[in-house]
Computed example of a mutant assay.
Amino acid sequence: MTLQDRRRARLSTGLGFVGTLLMTAGVAAILFAWWGVAHTGYVWEQIPYVVSGGVLGLGLIGVGGFLHFGSWLAKLVEEQRQTTYALLRLLEDRERP
């Protein structure tokens, strides 16, 4: 495994980890917003919880999901690259007498 391959693997793992953290933080923000809304009876006190916690939570979940999806795609590309290199090596060995 070359240095570049290790960097790609670290990047893919890092994207997945950060994506998971952001999605978890988004769920936590939504839960905190729900808790704030559930513990006040006035609508004018509930709106800031919904806006700040709910919208922020959905945004964090969206960004985290994109990062996690990007991590998955990077892993697929790396597997395809390794398969292609293996096939090229087999073809080169076959051409040699």
Rank of each mutant, 00 (worst) to 15 (best):
D5V: 02
W44C: 01
T20D: 08
V37D: 00
R94S: 11
L73M: 11
I30K: 15
G36M: 01
R96N: 11
F32A: 11
E92Y: 05
R81L: 05
A9G: 06
E78G: 06
V63L: 10
V50T: 02
T83H: 06
R81C: 04
E95N: 14
R6H: 07
R8V: 08
V77W: 14
T13Q: 13
Q46H: 02
L58W: 12
A9F: 10
F66A: 14
F69K: 04
G65P: 05
V55T: 11
P97S: 08
R89A: 13
G26M: 10
F32D: 02
A25V: 01
W44E: 15
L22N: 02
F32G: 02
V27P: 04
G62I: 03
V27D: 00
Y49M: 01
T20M: 06
P48L: 04
D93F: 08
G26V: 03
G14V: 00
I47V: 13
Q80C: 03
G57Q: 03
V77R: 15
L73V: 05
V77T: 12
V63Y: 09
Q4I: 09
T40R: 11
D5I: 01
G14A: 13
L22G: 05
A74Q: 10
V77N: 11
A25G: 02
R10Q: 13
L76K: 15
L3D: 15
L90Q: 12
V51D: 04
T84H: 09
Q82A: 10
E95C: 05
Q46A: 05
L73N: 08
Q80M: 04
T84F: 12
F66E: 14
W72H: 12
M1A: 08
T13H: 07
A33Q: 01
G59W: 03
S12W: 05
T24A: 15
F32I: 07
E45L: 14
F17G: 08
R81S: 08
W72V: 08
H39M: 07
G65W: 06
Y85W: 09
W34I: 11
V63F: 12
G16S: 12
L31Q: 04
G59S: 09
V43L: 13
L90D: 12
V18Y: 04
L88S: 06
L3S: 14
M1V: 05
L87G: 01
A25M: 08
Y49I: 00
V63R: 10
H68K: 00
D93Y: 06
W35K: 14
E45I: 05
R96T: 13
T2H: 06
T84A: 15
V55L: 15
L88P: 00
